[in-house]
Design a protein around this nucleic acid. Structure first.
Length: 509
RNA sequence: GGCCCUGUAGCUCAAUGGCAGAGCAACUGACUCUUAAUCAGCAGGUUGAAGGUUCGAGUCCUUCCAGGGUCACCA
């Protein structure tokens, strides 16, 4: 689809031509910025504090995007915004000259990038501003950005005509970011979360690695993969659904503590907490069991909160969430007893458990395994109630093929997940390192899944071969980084913490 | 995939089946300390798309497209 200028864009194209005619280059190559808006204001206030009215003049050249303009005729007040805030330009005809003043008034628009030079001063209403003597256009905006006006009422910032259509905001994230500063804040928080995670792992002697995104076999999670094709090799490839099997190969290779932050891809439904591609963090540590992993994970989330907010109490969707202290730990069995009033150990096989669930008025999908039914019970009755951080331990074996069994308990494995704000945040276990047991689990799983179930992972023979060389006992963990960011940024949907969330292609024909 | 809601000017939103409107932005002008600047004037539309019912459809019906919610699905 080619671009058809709207009437507003047509008008700006005319201005563009007029600017060139007047000898103004609308897209120059060089910029002469001396101060950011924040630096300029700070410098002015510092000088004022030290010397009062006798303060020496500060001349500055600033750059930014025109966000508002109040044209008084011979004087124009304009706010420009740069990456550090806003500052007001005071453009007076007597200061810039007749011609430059007319061009500024008539040929510039909201959204244009400009450079302005002048002495800093305070206006009568007290705002630090630039008394502009020279200005230069840096980039003409041809399309009008949504206009957002702000007003301060009793100290509260009220925004008018905000650009708020969710779909348009995601499809044109650049415009969203340009006019909604709070959106930029979300992605600063995201960056802080990720840098805190990296520092935490580095401080604990973990090695960061990168493993293949394109894989000949997929595994490590129950999910449908995206498939692709290598032309020259004539080979089917999958986009990874987890990092697990590659990272644990590295333990065989003698790397004791390893982690990866990267993208996973799952060809499944899209929801407020699912995007087809999402950021995952997985780590594995030799000689740890899942108790060590629990302690470490708790520490990790607290560390992140400290780095982002400087405290362990955060606000999420109106709830106060306290990440401090030791998080409650309870078994899945006890949690389900408490919230669903079913003791699944009294129903030790799938048919009887399915009956018990249906009798209690619950939903039990046909053909679900015992473990899947338990997981379903948990998801329906327990998970939404886990607002404060909670660790749930001791998972059914048949939904945990990579976790080590609990001695003397054939039904359960050493696995935990932790929950905050009713969301699963992470999944961990004492990793299975017995190659023969692992092979058996894979084979059991093949039988358990219905034929043709596309969540069934192919058996990764190379992974079994690696394990046969000897894998140290280890504990491992995976956390959905986007969900952690949702929590830290107080956002209710994953799309608000992804710069370019997946959207259906729009038919524009 | 099922059900519910939404789609109107660049943005935010109105309009009992009866002339498609407002505010902001734009445009013309006034104003040399404004800050949602103010004031006067002027323009801006294939109402998501295609069909249908009707004398008449933004509004009712059908299909489709997109988004949101919810349920199902989701180790």
């Amino acid at each position: 689809m080619s671009w058809e200028p709207t009437p507003l864009e047509q008008k700006r194209l005319e201005k563009l031509a007029e600017l060139r005619q007047a000898g103004v280059e609308p897209y120059p190559l060089r910029v002469e910025r001396t101060h950011t808006s924040a630096d300029a204001i700070a410098a002015f206030e510092a000088a004022e504090a030290e010397h009062g009215a006798e303060a020496p003049e500060i001349k500055a050249t600033l750059t930014g995007r025109i966000m508002s303009s109040r044209d008084m005729g011979k004087t124009v007040f304009t706010h420009i915004e740069d990456g550090y805030g806003r500052i007001q330009l005071f453009v007076r005809r007597d200061d810039v000259g007749e011609e430059a003043h007319q061009i500024f008034r008539k040929l510039l628009d909201l959204g244009d990038f400009v450079q302005a030079t002048g002495v800093l001063f305070r206006t009568r209403t007290g705002e630090v501003s630039v008394r502009v003597t020279e200005w230069k256009l840096l980039a003409k905006a041809v399309s009008p950005l949504p206009v957002v006006k702000e007003q301060e009422v009793d100290g509260e910032l009220v925004r008018h005509n905000a650009f708020s259509d969710v779909e348009e905001r995601y499809r044109q994230r650049y415009a969203d970011l340009a006019v909604n500063p709070d959106v930029r804040e979300v992605f600063k928080i995201r960056a802080k979360v990720i840098s805190a995670l990296r520092r935490y792992f580095e401080d604990h002697d973990f090695l960061e690695v990168e493993t293949p995104v394109l894989q000949p076999l997929y595994g490590g999670a129950a999910a449908r993969p995206f498939t692709t094709h290598h032309n020259q090799l004539k080979q089917e490839l999958y986009l990874r659904i987890s990092f697990e099997l590659y990272l644990k190969r590295l333990l065989v290779g003698g790397i004791e503590r390893v982690y990866e932050i990267g993208r996973d891809f799952r060809n499944e439904g899209v929801s407020f907490k699912h995007n087809p591609e999402f950021t995952m963090l997985e780590f594995y540590a030799a000689y740890w069991d899942y108790h060590n992993v629990m302690d470490f994970t708790e520490g990790m989330v607290k560390y992140v909160a400290q780095h982002v907010w400087g405290k362990s109490e955060i606000s999420y969707q109106g709830e106060t969430i306290n990440l401090g202290g030791t998080w409650p730990r309870l078994t899945m069995r006890d949690a389900i007893k408490q919230f669903a009033e079913i003791d699944y150990m009294e129903h030790p096989d799938a048919p009887s458990l399915a009956n018990a669930i249906r009798e209690a008025g619950g939903h039990a999908p046909i053909g679900a395994s015992w473990g899947k039914l338990i997981d379903g019970l948990f998801g329906d009755h327990v998970e939404p109630n886990l607002i404060q951080p909670t660790i749930i331990t001791t998972y059914p074996r048949d939904i945990s093929p990579l976790a080590k069994a609990i001695p003397g308990d054939p039904k359960h494995v050493e696995r935990f997940e932790f929950f905050i704000a009713g969301m699963e945040m992470g999944n961990a276990f004492t990793e299975l390192n017995d190659p023969l047991d692992q092979q058996q689990r894979f084979e059991d799983l093949q039988k358990l899944f219905a034929k043709g179930d596309d969540e069934l992972n192919p058996i990764d023979e190379d992974y079994l071969r690696a394990m046969r060389y000897g894998m140290p006992p280890n504990g491992g963990f995976g956390v959905g980084v986007d969900r952690l960011v949702m929590l830290m940024a107080d956002k209710a949907t994953i799309r608000e913490v992804l710069l370019f969330p997946h959207l259906r292609e729009r038919d524009e024909g």
